[in-house]
Structure formats: structure tokens, C-alpha cells
Design a protein around this nucleic acid. Structure first.
Lengths: 346, 346
DNA sequence: CTGAAAGCGCTTACAG
DNA sequence: CTGAAAGCGCTTACAG
């Protein structure tokens, strides 16, 4: 195996001091263009890779970003994807990633979140939902002067901090338009959790689309729900029990849609054919359901990568607004043009 | 924020030199019991946490483990779980984790895998399937003298190296026994990929159980398949086209089972009721299918954590045999007692 | 803009 | 078994 190259080797080849090499590597502007060229050339020629450990040690930096996310039963795929995206961004930007899991309902959640920030074990923080929705937490983190970004935040906190998230209202609007375009006129809704604002906004958008299409209140039945399979199952049953016969049911997310699909089958409904069920997120399993699920994709991993860039800027005191990612409709077999079945539903 | 404690602070409080503190921290046996006690006590009192960067730099070690896994479309959940388990183990054992993705069919796969090993950018390697099934790769890695473990290997390579995996033959046997116990006597099989040995072994085990139950060759129809949704879909259709009417179809894994479920529905079969379909893995989405899938759980994350321990031992020259994890049957709604439907299948 | 020097927190021969 | 010292590869005031 070839001997490891160090900053000294590069300095020797470039004919400068190690300090100058270090400056070039760190984008320090106080280096002449000529020396910069030579150092870069020498580094490339030697295939020099700086030693991360040494950089961190000498720079007295942790170069560690901290992801704070909820301990939650469902949606593990969501956090896997988010983490994968963050890791990718960390790799590009020379950061490490630590993860802190917090119970969203714990009374000690604020202390839990603030502890690593006050100890200085990280240089920046990524707040995932539902923490990104909580103005108190945002205020406390901001007061600590620790750079941070929020992911998938609701309207209130979005105005307060940098971050990324999907435009959920647009997503809801897009899904409703899709179904309206297929001829649907009677809808069911299974709602998400009250404290998860982004799920709420999906329905705000959908309602707008219904109103624009001239549908009245009697065209829609909502049911309390949640973001997991059992919640979707129960919510569907609640709609069914009202006697109202929607031709399409919009679920808060894909997991609850899976539950709703199963509930609909238990009632002997043919899917699709007698009923359309759709979700949000384009979870990895959405295409594995029967029928494969029509849904709205949000590129969570890409959002994670983007979040690191925004956070890296925040660390350098570059301020940015919260960024809204455009939703994308993914049409699969679970939605289809309304033929005569609308009349014969069930 | 409290000042960071260093090894010097601990040495001062314990009344020894920093070198002694370092030895205690590294389990060096050449420290008197008395000094060990004092150092440990001082470290605890000061809440001392050694600086990883400095340790790695001074020790000239990378403390990095390398996971080599295939670039594959489906089964991403599998690698997420494996990685999560490995990361947990790395945390406990003071390792970092790098991941190298390799195309299993690339002609350059051997070179890709050997490169980081020869460069010495890691201290140990984790080989995931299908690389763990390849005797050539095993031999090459062994020849490099780099410590390594294999995950989910077939019988041939299992005898050659340390690692962890489920006992797939036992898993297949267990699933077949479950279905036989429910009264099933006519079976369909969708096979996995030919080069993924652990999937093959599942069927070896199942066939044994059928033979033990006195079933003949005519009780089973197999179809070429794969490990993803489309493969399962196609494999089911192939079985269906033969005219054979199984009461239960055993699929190579959960993703292909999802495809088979969808195919069965397209043929108008009621699930369950007219047909049982089961899978292997207990993937996170298995409970989200309609019907929720009966399957065999393998604790992939725990296997990952265990793999790090085994690899850490290998690095210390402690040899271990390949470990087989016991499968666990997860019964959900997709399997049920055969009533009269066996006769009226379809 | 540039270099010499000190230092980041730890490990490890070396000498005892 | 123990300590003084050198050094891991880099960064950053400091002085110019």
C-alpha cells in the first residue's frame, strides 16, 4: 500500500510552507493566486487526502452536526431516508453526524435537546418534525446561538428559521386536483395527528381544490386519524360507519393509507374498482401495496442533503429563508378514472 | 458550558501520569490494580470522555470498519437495518463506519472491494450478500490479511469465515411446518435469485418439511423468481398459468410476496380465503400489506450489531465460527387454517 | 500574502 | 508497573 501523503509532502512539492497548504485547503482568502494553483496542483498530483482526525483536533472543532428526531414507532423509513440524505451532505461538507432520539411527549424533551447544544458537542443542529413545529423549542435553540435548521415545519415556525420541507398545501391541492380530474366528486379524508402541522396543511390544500371545483361541504367526510396503519384502519371504519360513500379516500400519509386499504377490503370493497385510496410521501413500500398506491412524493433524502448545505451556510453566518420543495404526483393503480362505479360504490 | 476534561485532568486528580491514564483507557494490562482503580474513579468523577479524534490520530489507527454491500434496487430497507445495527455496534466499540456500494455484476467488483483494503483505509470489513456468498472474494480478502466478517452467507462460504446470518434452512422448514399445520397440502414456490444462496436454502428446508409430511412431488409447483415486486408478480403468474391450484404460495421474500399478492388479486383471488401467500424477512412493510403478511423474522439490525462484535474480536486475533441466528415465525392474516376453500380454490 | 512555531488530546516506544 | 518525551497530521495566532 502506498505511503499516506501528508500536508508536508504537498508543501514540499509545491515549494511552500505547510501553513500555506493548510490555508488553501481551508479556502483562506489570504493566499496568492499563484500559490493556490501550485498547492492545488501538488495535492492533485499526490492524490492528497487530508486527515480528518488531525484537522478536527488541530482546529478545535467537532465538525459534528446533530440530528434531533422523535422516537416514533412508524415512519422509520422516513428517518432512514432523512439520515441517509444528511449523511450524504455531511460527507460532502466534511461533517460527522450524531443522532439524538427524543420522545416528543416527554416533559424533559426541552432539556434533552438543549443538553448537547450547551455542552458544545456539535456545531449545528437539525430539528425534525414534530420538534420543527414547536415555537418554544425553536426559540430556545435560537437563544443558545447554535446554528440550526428545521425540517418539514408548519407555517408558524417556517417563518422563524431556515430549513427545508415540502409544500404540503400544494401537495394536498395537487392530489385533490388529480382525483377531481379523474371524475371523483365524493371524498373521504383521514386526518393526521393534530400536532403534526405538515399533515394538516395537506388537507388545507385539498379543501381549496374542492372549493375551486365548486364542491360543497356535503361532498367530504373527515375522520380523526394518525400516521400509522392502525390509525388509517380505524379512520376508514369511522368514515364507513357514517354511511357516506366516497369514491376516493385521501389519507394523511402512506402508512395510514395502507391501513385504510386493509379496512376497505374487510368491508368487501374492490380496490380499485369500487374505491380509490391515496396517500402522501411515496414511502418505499407504496409501490408494494395492492393496489400500488398513488401518492405524492417528497424527496426526503435530497431534502436532507440540502439541509446540510443550508446548515453549513448558517454556521458561516449566511442566512437563508426556509425552502419549500415542490411536490410530485406519483400515479399508480390505486387511483383511476371514475366510470359507472361512482354510482354503484359498494 | 463546562470546560472539556482531558487526560491530563484525570492524571492530575488520580495522581498518576497521562501515560498511565491512557493505558487504563486502552485496557493495557501493564497497570497496577491500584492505579487502575484510581484512574477509573477520577475519570468518572470528572465525567471524562476521551477525544476520539486525538485517539485515532495518536494511535495511527483509522478505527474504521467498512461495509461492502451491493447496489441494489429493492431491499433498501434491509441495508438500512443492517447499517443501523452496524452503527450501533460501532458506537459501542469505538469504531466509525464507512460504506462501499458495489455493483454485484460489475467485472471490476473484485478490484473495487480490494482497493480500500489495500489502501488501509479501514481496519475491518463487513461483506454483505451476495459478496458473502462468493468464495473468490472471500479468498482474496482473506489473502489480504484484513479482518472481515460475512453476513447472510450460504453453506459454502459459511464454513470459511466468521460472520452472522439466519439459519435459512430452518426458516424454510418452520414456514412449511406452519402451513402444513394449518391444513395446506398444495403449495406454490416463487424462487429467489440463483446466486443468492440464503434464499435457496429456505426452499431446501421447506422441501424437507414436505417430504417429512409425506407429500409427493406433485404437491408443489415452483417458479423462477427474484427478490423484488415484479419478480414475485411474474412468478405468481407462471404458477397460475400451469393450471395448478395451490392453497398456499411461499415466496422467496416479502417484496416478492407483495408482488405475488398483487398478481393473485388481478386473477380475482380472495386473500386470504381463496389463497394464502407468505414471505420471508419480516420487512418493515410486511404488516402494512393487505392482508398483513405472515413471514419469518430475521433480526437484521441485531445481526449487524453482533457482526461488529465478531469483527472487533477478529481484529484482536480472536477467531470465531459463523453464527446462525434462529428464525422466528410471525403469524399475520395472510395465512389461516384451511377450511373448505382448499377444494374451491379460485 | 507567508513562514516558523506552538499546540490540539491522545498513544507508544523508550528507559527505568 | 511507570513516567518523560516524541510524535500523530493538521490549524492558527504571531510576527513579518
Amino acid at each position: 500500500m502506498p505511503a499516506k501523503k501528508t500536508i508536508r509532502d504537498v508543501a514540499l512539492l509545491a515549494g511552500v510552507s505547510p501553513a500555506t497548504v493548510s490555508r488553501v485547503l481551508n479556502d483562506n482568502p489570504r493566499v496568492s493566486a499563484e500559490n493556490r494553483e501550485r498547492v492545488l496542483g501538488a495535492a492533485k498530483a499526490l492524490r492528497f487526502r487530508p486527515n480528518t482526525q488531525a484537522r478536527l483536533l488541530a482546529g478545535k472543532r467537532t465538525s459534528t452536526l446533530l440530528l434531533i428526531h422523535p422516537i416514533a414507532g412508524p415512519l422509520t423509513w422516513y428517518f432512514h431516508l432523512l439520515e441517509a440524505g444528511l449523511l450524504k451532505g455531511c460527507g460532502r461538507n466534511g461533517f460527522q453526524l450524531d443522532t439524538l432520539m427524543v420522545f416528543p411527549d416527554s416533559p424533559r424533551r426541552m432539556a434533552k435537546i438543549l443538553q448537547p447544544i450547551e455542552r458544545g458537542t456539535c456545531e449545528g443542529v437539525v430539528l425534525a418534525a414534530p420538534f420543527s413545529d414547536d415555537p418554544e423549542i425553536i426559540a430556545a435553540v435560537r437563544a443558545s446561538r447554535m446554528p440550526f435548521v428545521i425540517i418539514a415545519a408548519g407555517a408558524e415556525t417556517r417563518a422563524l428559521a431556515a430549513g427545508v420541507g415540502m409544500d404540503d398545501e400544494a401537495a394536498g391541492h395537487m392530489m385533490a386536483r388529480h382525483l377531481l380530474g379523474l371524475g371523483h366528486r365524493r371524498f373521504g379524508f383521514t386526518l393526521g395527528l393534530p400536532d403534526h402541522l405538515s399533515a394538516q396543511e395537506r388537507f388545507v390544500g385539498a379543501r381549496k381544490a374542492f372549493a375551486e371545483a365548486g364542491l360543497g361541504e356535503d361532498a367530504v367526510v373527515e375522520a380523526e386519524g394518525g400516521l400509522d396503519f392502525p390509525s388509517g384502519f380505524a379512520a376508514f371504519n369511522r368514515i364507513h360507519d357514517t354511511g357516506f360513500k366516497p369514491t376516493a379516500v385521501i389519507c394523511a400519509n402512506d402508512e395510514s393509507a395502507a391501513g385504510a386499504i386493509h379496512a376497505a377490503r374487510m368491508h368487501g370493497l374492490q380496490l380499485p374498482g369500487a374505491l380509490n385510496i391515496v396517500g402522501f410521501d411515496d414511502a418505499p413500500f407504496a409501490r408494494l401495496l395492492s393496489p400500488p398506491l398513488t401518492t405524492i412524493a417528497q424527496t426526503i433524502d435530497i431534502m436532507g442533503t440540502r439541509a446540510v448545505t443550508i446548515l453549513a451556510d448558517a454556521i458561516r453566518k449566511i442566512e437563508r429563508p426556509y425552502e419549500m420543495v415542490k411536490p410530485r404526483l406519483v400515479i399508480r393503480e390505486s387511483s383511476e378514472r371514475v366510470r359507472d362505479f361512482a354510482a354503484s360504490a359498494e
